[in-house]
Design a protein around this nucleic acid. Sequence first.
DNA 1: CGCTCGTCAAGAGCAGTGCTCTCGTTTTTG
DNA 2: CAAAAACGAGAGCACTGCTCTTGACGAGCG
Lengths: 229, 229
Amino acid sequence: MPASSIRARVRAEMLDEIKAVARRHLATDGANLSLRAVARDMGMVSSAIYRYFPSRDDLLTALILEAYDALGDAVESADAGADRQDLRGRWHAVCRAARDWALAHPAEYALLYGSPVPGYAAPDDTVLPAQRPPVTLVGILRDGLADGRLDVPADDLPEPVHADLAEIAAGFFPGLPEALLARGMAGWTQLFGLISFELFGRLDRAVPHRDAYFDHQTGLMADLIGLPR
Amino acid sequence: MPASSIRARVRAEMLDEIKAVARRHLATDGANLSLRAVARDMGMVSSAIYRYFPSRDDLLTALILEAYDALGDAVESADAGADRQDLRGRWHAVCRAARDWALAHPAEYALLYGSPVPGYAAPDDTVLPAQRPPVTLVGILRDGLADGRLDVPADDLPEPVHADLAEIAAGFFPGLPEALLARGMAGWTQLFGLISFELFGRLDRAVPHRDAYFDHQTGLMADLIGLPR
DNA sequence: CGCTCGTCAAGAGCAGTGCTCTCGTTTTTG
DNA sequence: CAAAAACGAGAGCACTGCTCTTGACGAGCG
């Protein structure tokens, strides 16, 4: 362990602290994160931050990456914690885990699933972590199909849809019928539509009992997919 | 027509022009709209804008209101233009109209359905126009139920969900069974989930054939609701 | 040990932002 | 016609992201 690593260690701690403070600011101020404000909070001058993050966007990217990881962890561990045979239980567990994480970290959720920042383009590092929730969801269908608990819906897909989904299936779920994948992706869309509507205030005056509404709506999608009760 | 109206007329034109220029900036620069930039574009000094809009948020609110109206018009006229008896045709027409409007006005869509601006709270004027799309969608179900083309699903809703939906039904669709309303709202959630995923780049690398994918997914929701083929 | 080089924080500064206030000018109103 | 209201311009304040320079400190090498 050469002496140089002490400098590297303090630098790593600095990076973590900056991200932590930035996350705190994110929670209160939303997406318009101020570098100068986090610098002030750390007793530093704003230009010092640039030793650690070359720009504000890079700081945001780091936060986005960590957020994707946190959401992915939450979702996957919820799935892993459920009875493997209970497809519907796994479905609901995964959906609730995503929603719980979003409710606990609304600003970070908005960063991931809200309007994209105008100038900002998500780097390729984010694409894989971003796929963890849908992969987890469709994984439930794959398992259900494998042990005969789930039937393949008799949808006939238009050719272009068939082709696109076949490509996706080839990459993540070899052998999964496209009709089932399509319904799984419908569930995925519905899940984040539900969370976004709730978090972005679209249910504010209309639906006071959010938990029950959420469970019922995700249950409807489980019905559409054909998950056994 | 007193002489006073000439000033009022030029003022109204001013308001419209500011909004038009702002909308143009919105399309290119996204949500971080700069008052000074629109002032520059109009050959005015930034402080002059404040004669017309007391703050940047008020300008944004005006744009949001107009956007809600435009989307509502698009959606309702699509419904009105379809064969009243063809429930599924109406469903698809409404869904496509919403998506088409969103694709044509991505920045305004993001303003309506993206992450809420941190400090900004939507005024009450926006709540009614915001309800036009879901009301149009569920209106299709109401009509279908009225002339017997649509059956009431045999869902048993948990008590709190039943209560919340009954309240909504009482306000907009007197007599509509809550189970049907629930499925209609699922379609509504799915619709805007689909559009948001597409517009916010979540399908970028995965689904090249957007039109067909969209139609198929909204068709799945029509199946869930029970719209006859 | 001493010297050099890389890392770091601080400060000044630039261009841009929303917003306020004041000051003449113009137009409407009583 | 005179008082009042509306208007545009300009200066200014506090803030932002970001760049550049300066000075200090510590690690590595001869």
